[in-house]
Design a binder for these strands. Structure first.
Length: 630
DNA sequence: AGCACGCCGACT
DNA sequence: GTCGGCGTGCTC
C-alpha cells in the first residue's frame, strides 16, 4: 500500500509538507519519527506529523529515508509539544525539536512493549505548593517508595547540574533504582539512560530542565525542587517554563505536581492563595501552619548595616562586618563575602566632564578589570583603560563602585594574615562541591565571590556571610529585582548553620525586603504588583524586536502595535528595552497583558496579528511569561 | 531558516 | 549599463 507523510521542520514556519514514500521502505512511518526529505534545494531532517494512504493534493517529492529507526515520542509527549506550540507561540517543528532527546542514535530498532498505566493515584492530579522544611530528603524518599509500590516513577527536577550530584550520593543508599540526567553527560551515556527511563527500569529520575520531557512510561509524581529558580526558564525558543510544562504534562498523563520550596515564587504563592494550586501540609510538622520559613526556624543572626552611617574608609567593610570577620578568623572559622559584581570597579567616570566609558556594541558602562582592563559584561568587548578622558582629555578619570577584585584586595589589606580567595566567572571554575571541600580542608579563610558562591553546600560551611552592597541587586532594571533579592537572602539564611551571622550592607536599611518576612513580604510585594498591573495579576507576553538599525526596529515595532491596537488588545509600549542596545543590536518591545479573562482570545489574536517570521533586517521573538525583562 | 527573485541606488 | 543591498515569497 502506498503511503504519504506530512513533515514539520525546526523552522519558524507554521507549514507542514507532504511527501511520497517509495515502496522500497518496508517499515511503517511513526508519528514523531525523524525523516530526511528534500526541501527547496537542500535535504533536511524533519518530524513526521501525519501519515496517510490517500494521495494529498498538489505536487509531491519523495522521502529520501528514515533518519531514526523509531519515534522517541510517546503520544502524550507529542501532545505536550503541540501544547507548547500554542502556548509559547512557536511552530510544531520547533516544539518537537526542543522536546526531542538529543542526541539520539538512528541505527537502533527497539520494541517497547510496555505494561500500560493503571489509574491508581494517591493524590488528585493537581499542583501542590510545599514547604519541605528540614525533612526534605526523607519526604522525597517516602514519596518515591509510595509510588514504587504502585509501579509508578517519580520525576525530580532541580535547577542546576551541581544539585543532581547531591542527590546521586543520597539515592545510592536508598535502595531504589535511579537515573541522574542532564546535558553534560556524554552522548552514549545520555542515550543509555534515556533507554532505561523509556523502558521504565527506574523508580526515580533526577535531572535539570529538559528532564521534564523524560520518556518515563508511568509517572506517579513530578517534584520541582526550588521552584522559584530562574533556571527553570528556557532561554531559547520556545521559551518555556518548567512549572507550566510539568503542570500541563500532569494534566495529560494524570499525575500531580509538587512545587517544593521554602521560598516560593510570588507567582506560585499567589496561585496557592487563589486556590489554583493547593497548599500541601506536611503531617508530622505541625509546629508551623505557614508555608514559609520564618525567623524562628532560622538559626543565624541577621544584621543590617546602614552604609550611610559608616566612615568613608569603612564603606566596603563596615566596622560591624570587620568585627564579625575578625572574631570568626580568631576562632578558625571561614567567612564568605558576597559581591554582586565581578571586576574591580563598575565603571570609569570622568569627574571633569561627567562622561562614562561605554561599550560601543551595548552602550552600557564598561567594567574595569585589573588584568583585562575595560570589559563589557554583556558582549565581552574588551579594550585598554584610557589614561585621560576620551571625551575632554582631562586626567580625572575615576573608578566608581566595587567588584570582586577590589573587595578581594581590600580584604587582604584589612586581614593580612588571612588566606583570601576570589570566586567569580573570571577565575578558573571550581564546582560548588570542590569549593566546599577546600573550606573543609581549611585551605581558605575568606571567600570573596559572586552569585556562584550562594550554594547551600558552601554557605553551610562558613560562619559569617557578608553582603557588601545589596543595593546593586535591588536596582537592576527589572520589576522582579526585589523578589529575586528576597529569594537570595532566604537562600543564604536557610543554608546557614546554627550560630552563624549574616551581615547585609545597604544604603536603604528600611527597605521592605529587609524588614518584612514570609507572608508579610508576599502581601506587600503583591500589593505593589497589583497597583502597577504586573504579573502575577496579569499574564504577560513580551514581543521583542531586534535589528541593527534603530529606526527600522522602532518602525516594525510600531506597525505591529497598530495591528494589536485594532484588535483592542491591552499592551505596554512600544518602548525601548531596558538595555536599548545589546551586542550592536537595537531592541524594542511590546508587552501584551491579559488579566485572565481573554487568554484564549489573546493567543488567537497574536497568531493573526504577529507573523511568526519577521523578514528583513528586524528579528522578532515571543516570550510568554517572561522572567527577566532586559 | 535558507534561498531565489526582483527592485532601486552608486559604481567601473 | 551592472553590482549588490535588502524586502518578499516559497519551500511538499
Amino acid at each position: 500500500m502506498k503511503s504519504y507523510i506530512q513533515v514539520a521542520f525546526n523552522l519558524p514556519t507554521e507549514k507542514f509538507f507532504w511527501y511520497r514514500l517509495s515502496s522500497d521502505f518496508k517499515e511503517k512511518p511513526e508519528i514523531g519519527q525523524r525523516v530526511v526529505v528534500p526541501l527547496g534545494k537542500k535535504e533536511k531532517v524533519g518530524f513526521v506529523v501525519n501519515v496517510s494512504s490517500k494521495k494529498p493534493e498538489g505536487k509531491l517529492k519523495e522521502m529520501i529515508g528514515f533518519f531514526d529507526r523509531f519515534s522517541p515520542f510517546s503520544s502524550s509527549l507529542f501532545q505536550l509539544a503541540s501544547w507548547i506550540t500554542d502556548y509559547y507561540g512557536c511552530s510544531l517543528g520547533q516544539a518537537l525539536h526542543s522536546v526531542f532527546p538529543h542526541p539520539f542514535p538512528y541505527e537502533e530498532k527497539i520494541d517497547f512493549s510496555l505494561s500500560h498505566p493503571q489509574e491508581n493515584s494517591t493524590l488528585k492530579k493537581e499542583v501542590y505548593l510545599i514547604n519541605p522544611g528540614e525533612q526534605k530528603i526523607e519526604l522525597f524518599l517516602s514519596w518515591i517508595r509510595e509510588n514504587k509500590k504502585i509501579n509508578k516513577q517519580v520525576l525530580i527536577l532541580v535547577p542546576e547540574i551541581s544539585l543532581t550530584c547531591a542527590f546521586e550520593e543520597k539515592i545510592e543508599k536508598w535502595g531504589v533504582k535511579s537515573v541522574i540526567f542532564h546535558s553534560k553527560l556524554p552522548p552514549r551515556e545520555r542515550y543509555r539512560r534515556w533507554l532505561a527511563m523509556k523502558k521504565g527500569e527506574v523508580d526515580v529520575v533526577v535531572g535539570t530542565r529538559s528532564v521534564v520531557f523524560s520518556p518515563l512510561p508511568n509517572i506517579g509524581l513530578t517534584l520541582i525542587d526550588e521552584e522559584q529558580s530562574i533556571d527553570y526558564k528556557q532561554k531559547e525558543t520556545p521559551k518555556y517554563g518548567v512549572r507550566e510544562v510539568a503542570t500541563k504534562r500532569g494534566e495529560i498523563e494524570n499525575f500531580p505536581v509538587y512545587l517544593v520550596s521554602g521560598s516560593p515564587s510570588l507567582d506560585s504563592w499567589y496561585k496557592a492563595q487563589k486556590g489554583v494550586y493547593r497548599l500541601f501540609n506536611i503531617p508530622e510538622k505541625e509546629k508551623t501552619s505557614s508555608h514559609l520559613t520564618t525567623d524562628m526556624h532560622r538559626p543565624s543572626s541577621f544584621f543590617i548595616v546602614d552604609v550611610k552611617k559608616e566612615k568613608k574608609k569603612n564603606r566596603i567593610f563596615s566596622s560591624l562586618l570587620q568585627e564579625k570577620i575578625k572574631e570568626a578568623l580568631e576562632r578558625g572559622f571561614p567567612v564568605l563575602v558576597f559581591v554582586p559584581r565581578r571586576g574591580y570597579a563598575n565603571f570609569l567616570l570622568c569627574s571633569d566632564c561627567g562622561e562614562v566609558i561605554r561599550c560601543p556594541n551595548c552602550n552600557i558602562s564598561l567594567s574595569f578589570h585589573l588584568k583585562k582592563e575595560m570589559l563589557c559584561h554583556w558582549c565581552g568587548f574588551q579594550k585598554e583603560a584610557p589614561l585621560t578622558c576620551p571625551f575632554c582629555e582631562g586626567i580625572s578619570v575615576r573608578k566608581i563602585g566595587w567588584g570582586t577584585q577590589r573587595v578581594e584586595l581590600e580584604a587582604k589589606k584589612i586581614f593580612p594574615a588571612a588566606r583570601v580567595e576570589r570566586f567569580d566567572l573570571d577565575v578558573f571554575k571550581l564546582s560548588p562541591h570542590l569549593i566546599s571541600q577546600r573550606i573543609k580542608n581549611k585551605e581558605v579563610d575568606i571567600l570573596v565571590g559572586t552569585q556562584l558562591l550562594i550554594k547551600e553546600e558552601i554557605i553551610s560551611m562558613v560562619n559569617v556571610v557578608g553582603v557588601i552592597l545589596l543595593d546593586v541587586l535591588l536596582n537592576v532594571p527589572d520589576f522582579r529585582a526585589t523578589e529575586r533579592t528576597f529569594h537570595l537572602l532566604n537562600k543564604i539564611r536557610h543554608s546557614q548553620k546554627k550560630g552563624s551571622f549574616l551581615i547585609v550592607q545597604t544604603y536603604n536599611p528600611t527597605y521592605y525586603v529587609l524588614n518584612k518576612e514570609g507572608e508579610e513580604f508576599y502581601s506587600e510585594e503583591l500589593k505593589i504588583r497589583e497597583t502597577l498591573g504586573y504579573p502575577p495579576f496579569q499574564r504577560w507576553i513580551r514581543i521583542l524586536f531586534e535589528g541593527r538599525t534603530k529606526n527600522k526596529v522602532k518602525d516594525k515595532c510600531e506597525k505591529i502595535a497598530e495591528e494589536l491596537e485594532k484588535k483592542n488588545l491591552d499592551f505596554l509600549g512600544p518602548s525601548p528595552c531596558p538595555f536599548l542596545q545589546i551586542k550592536g543590536q537595537y531592541r524594542y518591545h511590546i508587552i501584551l497583558r491579559d488579566d485572565g479573562t481573554k487568554t484564549k482570545f489573546l493567543e488567537e489574536s497574536i497568531k493573526k496579528a504577529i507573523p511568526r517570521t519577521m523578514r528583513g533586517s528586524v528579528k522578532l521573538g515571543i516570550d510568554v511569561d517572561p522572567l527577566i525583562i532586559t
